[in-house]
Write a protein that binds this DNA or RNA. Structure first.
Lengths: 301, 301
DNA sequence: CGGCGCGATAGATGTGATCTATCGTGGCAG
DNA sequence: CTGCCACGATAGATCACATCTATCGCGCCG
C-alpha cells in the first residue's frame, strides 16, 4: 500500500468525481482509475460505486476514511516536523567540557553562543577527558571541549585557542618576588589535581616531572587547588582562563619562562552529521578567545 | 514519501544495522541504503549516523520516529479494518419495503434472514414505491422490496414470489356467498388506498377500472382499509400475504376468477457492489415464500 | 598487516505508475 | 425518440524507479 494511493482515495471520496479528483492530484483520470482499482483489489472490497454521473463511496469506504486521513496526516506531520528540524544550527547540542575549563570558559562564551546561534540549545556536560570521550563515542555527547589531542580515527577535532599556564604562588612565596618563573622551579612544592584531570599530567610534563611527585595532595577541583595555594601549602600551574579566579583568591601569578600552555580543542565524532553546528560553535568560541593567549601570558588578566 | 520507506526507516532504527534491517524487510542491503538515503534527501536532514560498527539514529530521527510509527500503524489499521469489512454478507443493509408488504412480509422473513445472514444488519425502511426508488438512486437505500417493475437502466431487479389478490368482503356482502369472485364484480363498491400506493393502481387495473372510480375514500394504510371493509363500507382487493390480518379483522376472503395478483421483486442499483448480499437476501425471501402463491390462491391461508 | 564486517556505490533489470487515445454507457435536450 | 455529452473503463506505449548482484572503501581486530 502506498501513501500516494491513499491520497488519491481521499481525493476521489472528496470530489465524488474521478476527473476532478485526478486534476486535484495532478494526474490523468485513467491513472487515478487504475490506482483506485488496485487499492480496491488490495483491500479486497469495493471503495466506490461508479455511475455515469460520478462516484459514491461505499459504506466500507466510509469506515476506512478515518484511518486513511490519519495515515496521510501523520505522513504530512513527518514532512512538517522534518522541515522544522532541518536547520543544523537548531536543536539540542550536548557539549562536554573538562572541569578545569568549564567554570572559566563557559561564562565567557555563553552569551556569544546564544547571540550567534539562538536556536541551538547547548547542554553543557562537565566531566574528565576520558569520560567525555566515552560519552562522545556512545552518542551521548555531540561534541566536547578538551585540552588534549584526540586519539582514534573515529574522532576529529579543531583547535580553538591556546591558553598559557601561569605560575600560581602564595604571596609570601620566595618566587613571588620574580617577574618570571621557570617551570622547573615550581616542581619543589607543586600541588596537583587528582588523577584523570588532564591538567595534572600537563603540569607534571611542563615541570619536567615524570612520576608521582608533587606531594600527596590530590585536589578534586581547580578551585580547591587554588585555595590550597592561597593558604600557602604550595605552588601550582593554573591555566590562563582561571587567572581571574586565582587572583580573587589572593594568589600571585607569574608568567612562565618557557611559556608552557595548552591548546583547547573542540572534538567530535567524524560521523556526526551536523557539521555546520560544530563549525559555528567552534568559530564563536575561537573568535571570543582570539588574542587571549598574548594578554594572559604577558601580564595576567 | 512512501509507506514502504517509512517501514524501512523503522527497521533500521530498530536494528541499528542496515544488513539485519534489510533482512527483516526482505530486501537487499544496498536497496535499503539507497532508500534510506532518498528519504534523508526528501526530509532534508540526516536520519542516521553511519559508523563501521552500525548506525545510530540522529536526534532529529528520534523526534520523527513517533510520527513514522503512527503513520505505519494507521496504514496497518486500514488493512486490518478492510479485512473485517471484506465480507459482502456483513454490515449494514438498508432495505426499503412498500407499506402494503412490510407488516405482512417482514414477520415471515426476519427470522430466516437472521439465521442465514447473521452478520448482515438489515435496516428496514417503509415508504411508497416512488420514494423508495428515489432513495435507492440517492444511495440512501441498498435495495428495496417492490411490487412493480423497475424503470430505468440504472436499476436492476429480481422477482422473488407472486402473491395472488383476494376479494375482501364484509360477511354480510352478497358476494360473500360465492366460492369465487370475478374481479370486475368488485368494482361497484370497491374501496382503495391513497394515491401513491402501488396496490391502489393494481387493484384498479385488476378490476378493469381506469379512472378515479371506487368512491372517495383514500385509505392511508391497508390496515385502515381492512377495517373499513370489515365495517361494511365496501369491498377491496387484498394481497395474499395480508390474508391472515384480513380474516382476523372479520373479513371474508374469496379467490378471484382471473387470479389477479402481483409479483414482489427485490430492486437495486445496477452499480451496487455488494451483489452477493443482494442474491443472498433474495434467495432467503424467495425460499421462505416458495409455494405461497398456490396455497393463498386456493383456500386462503 | 591482512582479513573481516559494514555501509556506499555502480550498472543491469524488471515492475509498475503514468500518459494518450479510445470505448461503452447512461442521462439529457432538441 | 434520438443524437450528443459527460463520465469512468480499457488498451498500449513509455518512462521512472525499486531492486538486484557485484564491488568498493574503510575502520577494526587479531
Amino acid at each position: 500500500m502506498n501513501l500516494r494511493d491513499l491520497r488519491y482515495l481521499l481525493a476521489v471520496a472528496e470530489h465524488g468525481h474521478f476527473g476532478r479528483a485526478a486534476e486535484a492530484c495532478g494526474i490523468s483520470q485513467p491513472t487515478l482509475s487504475v490506482q483506485v482499482r488496485k487499492l480496491e483489489d488490495l483491500l479486497g472490497l469495493p471503495l466506490f460505486e461508479r455511475t455515469t454521473r460520478g462516484v459514491v463511496p461505499t459504506a466500507a469506504c466510509e469506515r476506512l476514511l478515518g484511518h486513511v486521513r490519519a495515515a496521510v496526516t501523520e505522513a504530512d506531520a513527518i514532512l512538517s516536523v522534518a522541515r522544522g528540524l532541518r536547520d543544523p544550527l537548531a536543536g539540542r547540542f550536548r557539549l562536554g567540557i573538562i572541569p578545569t575549563l568549564a567554570p572559566y570558559l563557559l561564562p565567557l562564551v555563553f552569551a556569544p553562543l546564544r547571540a550567534a546561534l539562538p536556536a541551538l540549545e547547548i547542554e553543557p556536560w562537565e566531566d574528565q577527558t576520558s569520560a567525555l570521550l566515552d560519552r562522545l563515542r556512545a552518542h551521548e555527547l555531540d561534541a566536547a571541549l578538551l585540552a588534549t589531542e584526540t586519539d582514534g580515527p573515529d574522532l576529529a577535532s579543531r583547535a580553538l585557542f591556546t591558553e598559557p599556564f601561569l605560575a600560581a604562588l602564595p604571596p609570601e612565596h620566595p618566587l613571588a618576588a620574580r617577574e618570571v618563573v621557570a617551570e622547573a622551579e615550581l616542581s619543589r612544592d607543586i600541588l596537583l589535581l587528582a588523577d584523570g584531570h588532564c591538567l595534572r599530567d600537563q603540569a607534571l610534563a611542563a615541570c619536567g616531572l615524570g612520576g608521582a611527585l608533587g606531594g600527596t595532595l590530590r585536589a578534586a577541583s581547580l578551585s580547591t587547588l587554588l585555595n590550597m595555594v592561597a593558604a600557602g601549602y604550595g605552588t601550582t600551574l593554573v591555566p590562563g582562563l582561571a587567572a581571574g579566579a586565582a587572583q580573587d583568591a589572593g594568589i600571585v601569578l607569574r608568567p612562565l619562562a618557557a611559556r608552557a600552555g595548552r591548546t583547547v580543542r573542540l572534538a567530535w565524532r567524524g560521523s556526526f552529521p551536523r557539521r555546520p553546528a560544530l563549525d559555528a560553535v567552534a568559530e564563536v568560541i575561537a573568535t571570543r578567545l582570539r588574542g587571549f593567549a598574548e594578554g594572559a601570558a604577558a601580564g595576567v588578566v
